[in-house]
């Protein structure tokens, strides 16, 4: 456990080293958030309520989505690809810690640093320039927190699984892009899927993506009743279990493959 804490600490320092990246990221994310806010304001100009959500809730949705996007940054897929390309997989796997545990700790470290570096500033900027993103129903807070933790895990597991494809088909850059696009467009991070045609939305509700962004965000803005939210979280949990099982299986196979072939 101590080793993992050490990795986390190192990663926090690493993430904070380049102050220009930090400020650059804040500026870029702020621009994106404010543009999105105006986008929705313009769409709602002549309407009060579309798809059961009003303009005000939509702005909250945008701000919290920006914050979540910071939390949902992963580096694990790139790390795996790099270790395969550079041929360091085998030695990485010989280390006295689990490789994937190490990658997980690194991502946790980044997120802790990014929480202070990016999420807090973005929260403050959003509150000043757009609106204070108040939660619709504060009693839902425990649900929200649990769903965010689960969405973080689901997101990380999907990233790790995509990364593991690198063990078979070395260059996964394009695949990482595919994943990124799927996640960006089908998770409700930019546009909630309740604006999609019903059939499409129904299909998406079966896939794991909406449980990464849209579910926690819906809970936050209080869309739907408590029963809907609980049902959503049940599906989210099922996805977490499924992905974790696939991950454990894939990890076992990948490790065996690397050990036999020696990378």
């Amino acid at each position: 456990m101590k080793k993992y804490f050490y990795i986390i600490k190192t990663q926090i320092i690493k993430t904070m080293t380049y102050e220009f990246n930090v400020y650059g990221n804040i500026i870029m994310q702020t621009i994106i958030m404010i543009t999105s806010a105006y986008f929705w304001k313009a769409l709602y100009r002549n309407q009060d309520n579309v798809g059961g959500v009003d303009a005000d809730s939509m702005l909250t949705y945008i701000i919290i989505s920006s914050l979540l996007s910071v939390l949902l940054i992963t580096n694990v897929e790139k790390r795996i690809e790099q270790s395969v390309i550079k041929g360091t997989v085998a030695t990485d796997m010989m280390r006295p810690i689990n490789v994937f545990g190490g990658y997980f700790a690194e991502d946790i470290g980044s997120i802790i640093a990014l929480f202070f570096q990016n999420m807090l500033p973005i929260f403050i900027i959003g509150s000043i320039f757009i609106k204070v993103p108040k939660m619709a129903d504060i009693t839902a807070l425990p649900l929200f927190i649990i769903s965010v933790v689960e969405s973080f895990l689901i997101n990380w597991l999907i990233a790790a699984l995509f990364g593991m494809i690198a063990f078979t088909a070395i260059n996964i850059d394009a695949l990482i892009q595919v994943k990124k696009h799927l996640l960006r467009l089908l998770s409700g991070s930019i546009i909630p899927v309740w604006f999609f045609p019903e059939k499409v939305a129904n299909v998406l509700e079966v896939l794991p993506f909406v449980y990464i962004y849209q579910l926690p965000l819906s809970i936050y803005i209080g869309k739907g009743d408590r029963a809907d939210q609980i049902r959503g979280m049940e599906i989210q949990f099922v996805w977490l279990v499924i992905l974790a099982a696939i991950f454990l299986y894939a990890q076992k196979r990948a490790t065996r493959k690397v050990m036999v072939q020696g990378g």
Partner: peptide, 14 residues
């Protein structure tokens, strides 16, 4: 050749 296949799916998809 394999990477062009990847980009051919990824970019239009987006």
């Amino acid at each position: 050749p394999s990477s062009i296949a990847g980009w051919l799916i990824s970019n239009p998809l987006q």
